[in-house]
Structure formats: C-alpha cells, structure tokens
C-alpha cells in the first residue's frame, strides 16, 4: 500500500494541485491579513463593543474561509480519480499486479488524507493566527487543536465521498455533484442556524440532510471551538453572524457520527470497487 500512497502524494505535487492550492491560499491569507489589520486600525478606539463585534465577524469569516478551501481541495483532488484512471488504462496495469483492490483504494485515500493534514495545518495556522492576533480574547490551545481536527476530518470525509463518486462519475461530474451537495449542506446549515428554535420542522429537515453529508456540522462545531466555546463570555455574539453563525452548536455525537460515516463510506467504496470491471 505504501507504493500507492507515495504515488498519490507524488501526483499531488507533480500535477501542481498542491502547489497551486498553497500559492492561492497564501494570497488569500495575505488579503485577509490586510483587511483584518485595516479594520482594526479603523475601529473606534473608545468603542470596545464595535471592536469586539468586528473581531467575531472576522473569526466567522476566517472559519468559513478554512471550511471552503479545505472542502474544495478535498473534493477536487480525488473527483473522478478512479473513473479517469479506468478510462485511460492506468488502473488496469496497476490492478493486474499482486495487490488487492482495497489497498489501491485505501492507498489513494491515505495519500490524500496525509496531504490534507499538512494543508489544513497550513491554512488553519495562517488564518486563525492572523485573526487571533487582533482578537480581544485568547482561545485555549486544546480547543484550537479540536477545531483543527474537525477541519481535517471534514477534508477526509469529503475525499472519501469524492472517491466513492469517482467509481462511476467523470472528474467534472463528480466534482460538480459533490460541490452542489456540499453547498446544499451549508445552506441548510445556515437556515438551521438562522431560524429560531421554534422552527422545529426546519431543524428536522436539516438534520436529515446532515446525515447525508455531515460536513456543515463539523464546520459549525469547529467555529464554536475556535471561538473558545462556552468559556468565552461573548458566545452569544457568535449567533449573530447570519449564515456563518453558530446558534445551535452541533454536539460531539455529531462528530462521532462523522467518524462512523467516514468508515462506512470507505468500506462501501472498497466493496463496490472490488467488483467493478476495469
């Protein structure tokens, strides 16, 4: 399996997927740094409430930015990977070797999962570092670590689903399909967070959608953790961030579900691919 893992990592470097992603994210972080620093300078020195609200907004947007770039990277790295390799015959030469198919699949996924650890670390450290530098509060390291882990899990989960779809769909169809599903989750999550606790039917509908792809729950929980959780006395302000806000914090049970979901998706793709004609 190490041969497949190495090949996947080498592919990400050689095809410049990683390089382009890192360069563009660095530019994005530079822009974020500029805006956050500018915003702070412009803040009214003797209006601490305005200053605090701006910090919370920056944090909400920063968390959404991490969520977005991690998701895009995860979705497009493996979208259509299998179908295109079957089409070009690359996979036939590999699968004809003395290796069980599950190892080929898991090798690809683990290769991308390892890259995602590095990629999420870079994006997370950059964005959160910039925002927290100007924040009036300090988030404990344990909670930052939890938020980092949740974003890593989100990337792993999307990569697994992308791999599953790539058994049947072309790169474009797989990428577009999963992106739409991901945005549907986000919009549903945004609605769920925006409506009051009275709208139980909306919560029920979004909960069902969250079972389909629990990425939004991970993102909201990660935002909550970056903020410092319930230890932060300003936690109520987090609910005022509109579509990026967290009014109803997803429980750790949701995270456990995401882990089970990830395992299930990987088991399913292994099972399907085992019998797929190449």
């Amino acid at each position: 399996m190490t041969a497949t893992i190495r090949a996947t990592i080498k592919e990400a470097f050689r095809r410049q997927t990683l390089v382009v992603s890192v360069v563009l994210v660095t530019l994005l972080m530079a822009a974020l740094w500029y805006f956050v620093a500018h915003q702070q300078k412009a803040a009214i020195a003797n209006a601490p409430m305005v200053n605090t609200f701006q910090s919370v907004t920056a944090l909400g947007l920063g968390s959404f930015m991490i969520n977005l770039v991690v998701a895009f990277f995860a979705i497009f790295c493996l979208s259509g990977n299998l179908s295109s390799e079957i089409e070009t015959g690359t996979l036939a030469a590999v699968a004809a070797r003395p290796i069980v198919r599950s190892r080929i699949l898991l090798g690809k996924w683990i290769g991308i999962a390892l890259i995602e650890i590095g990629y999420v670390s870079l994006v997370f450290a950059g964005v959160i570092g910039i925002i927290l530098t100007y924040n009036p509060w300090v988030t404990p390291a344990g909670q930052l670590l939890a938020a980092w882990g949740l974003f890593v899990l989100e990337g792993w989960l999307l990569s697994a689903v992308a791999l599953l779809l790539s058994v049947w769909l072309s790169p474009v169809a797989g990428g577009v399909g999963l992106s739409i599903l991901y945005f549907t989750e986000f919009v549903a999550g945004a609605f769920s967070q925006s409506v009051g606790s009275q709208a139980s039917s909306v919560h029920a509908a979004t909960s069902v959608l969250a079972l389909l792809l629990p990425t939004d729950s991970l993102y909201r929980r990660a935002t909550f953790e970056i903020f410092g959780g319930r230890h932060n006395p300003l936690v109520a302000v987090l609910g005022n961030l509109g579509p990026f806000g967290v009014n109803f914090t997803p429980s750790w049970g949701t995270v456990v579900y995401a882990l089970i979901y990830l395992t299930g998706i990987l088991a399913l793709v292994v099972k399907i691919f085992k019998r797929r004609d190449i």
């Binding site: 090949a7 080498k10 592919e11 050689r14 095809r15 070009t88 015959g89 690359t90 036939a92 030469a93 004809a96 070797r97 003395p98």
Partner: peptide, 17 residues
C-alpha cells in the same frame, strides 16, 4: 499475479512520472 506481466491494449501510464 506476482509471476504475471501484462501489457494492456489501451493504456497510459501516469504522465507526471
């Protein structure tokens, strides 16, 4: 398959390697 070599009819090896 450790003792078998295979040249597929239609193939393309990883172009970036």
């Amino acid at each position: 398959r450790a003792q078998i070599g295979y040249l597929p009819e239609l193939f393309r090896y990883q172009p970036w390697l």
